Simulated scan of single mutants.
Amino acid sequence: MLRTRTWIRRLAPLALPALWGAVAVLWKLTCPIAQQEGTAARIATSVVFFTVGTGLVLGLRCGLVKELKQVRAVAQAAQLVLLRPPPPRLDGLSLAAAQLSAARGAAVGGDLYEAVGTPHGVRIVIGDVRGHGLPALGAVAAVLGSFREAAHDEPELGGVLRRLERALGRHLRERARDEHPASGGWDPDSPSAEEFVTVLLLEIRRDGTVLALNCGHPWPYLLGGAGAEPVPAGEPLPPLGAFPLPDELPVHRCVTLPPGGALFLHTDGAEDARDASGRFFRLRDVLDQAVRGAPVHPAALIHRVHSALLRHTGGRLTDDVALMVVRNDRCRVPAQSGDPGPCRTRPAPSPR
């Protein structure tokens, strides 16, 4: 019964063109005018069949457009579940994020981000899968799915990173088996030597301390009233999937985020974007102009960088771009317990 209804629904747009076609054939066979010779009869016949043909094309088009809209709605819902927007506020932090996909018609691509509140602090991941567009979604799903579980379960940031590595490894092995069924189901020694993911893991604690583990990803910018400064940190690890993680993971205590201070996270598609003449997008200059002497508003800053990036490239991106802003809206700890003091958001001091 369900299959019958499905077929009826699919064939419904063809009902009117089919009726028109039957009328045209009947007219040709039975109407005396259609059986006459001469210019007038030919013109009348042509008009009838042209009308029938137009109706048939329009009927097919309406059906295809309706089905395409349904497919797009389902795809958009699935993409939003995969790369859901972060909450505007999370444990005293204000957040905003956006992604630009290089694949036309796709809401997500090879970049990923997520922020979750945990007993260990707010943990954030941002990453970039090698390649872009829809083919990279499998690795994005593997890394994000693992992070959403590990961020709550693992007490140390290094444990989260190792869970991401294992999840990515499983995904690559499964994909290699699917692409090479002749392997007999055995896991290849190197499932995909050219597949890797750059990852930046952050943990923002209640006192504003920011811990970081970086696997080949661009470091964020620290934003304040004096402008944008790169976060001072050490040498990053290789990207996930390129080499095994070392036994000791260097967790960097890279910065303390003061009340009102913000971090700008991005993937390399932002700074590598070029215009028609080959000039790179000057991300730091855009951030400086946006925040110098003014408070940082995460959503407004994301919109400004997003618009500047599209203007610079003329809307023609060659790589996916992910952007995220995290602002500390927590109150400054009072000097004396008896004086709670006002809870205000102040611009961050100039980073040194």
Rank of each mutant, 00 (worst) to 15 (best):
C331K: 10
F281S: 02
R279I: 07
L257G: 02
G38Q: 03
R175P: 06
A102L: 08
G121T: 01
G269Q: 08
L309W: 06
V326N: 05
P238A: 08
P85M: 04
R311G: 09
R205W: 06
A139T: 00
V81F: 11
V108M: 10
A300S: 14
A176W: 08
D288V: 00
R123K: 02
T51H: 07
L237I: 08
V48P: 07
H252C: 14
V57T: 03
E179D: 12
V333M: 08
L100Q: 09
P238G: 04
F49T: 09
A242D: 02
F264E: 08
S183Q: 14
S46Y: 12
L64K: 00
G63T: 00
L56K: 00
A182H: 13
R148W: 03
V210P: 00
P230D: 11
A226Q: 03
G21L: 15
V65H: 09
G121D: 04
L168W: 07
L82P: 05
G63M: 00
P349M: 13
A136R: 13
A139L: 09
G224Q: 01
G234C: 10
D128M: 07
P342A: 15
D247G: 11
A40G: 09
R332A: 15
A75F: 10
P87E: 13
R173H: 14
A322M: 12
Q36D: 14
G341I: 02
L164K: 04
H306Q: 14
G269I: 03
G92E: 08
S94W: 09
P246E: 15
D275W: 01
G341D: 01
L95W: 02
H171F: 15
P349W: 03
P298M: 06
E114H: 10
P239G: 01
L323T: 01
P232D: 02
E154C: 06
N328T: 05
A12W: 12
S307E: 14
G109F: 10
H152G: 08
V48F: 13
V333C: 04
F147T: 04
L287A: 08
G227M: 01
A12F: 10
A22H: 03
P87I: 04
A98G: 12
H303Q: 15
V129T: 02
S183A: 10
V197T: 04
D320Q: 05
G234R: 10
L265V: 00
V251C: 05
W7V: 05
P188R: 07
E229Q: 15
E154S: 07
F147S: 03
A139Y: 14
H266T: 01
P238Q: 07
A18E: 10
Q289T: 01
D339K: 11
F264G: 05
C343S: 05
V116C: 03
G138W: 14
V143A: 04
R84K: 06
E203L: 11
D319F: 10
A290S: 13
H252T: 12
W186C: 10
R170H: 13
Y221C: 02
C254P: 09
A335V: 12
H297S: 14
L257M: 03
G269N: 08
A228S: 06
D111K: 13
H152F: 13
L11Y: 05
G278N: 05
P85W: 00
E174F: 06
A348P: 00
H252V: 13
C31S: 12
I33M: 13
L245T: 01
L60M: 13
F50G: 13
R253E: 15
Y221K: 02
G338E: 15
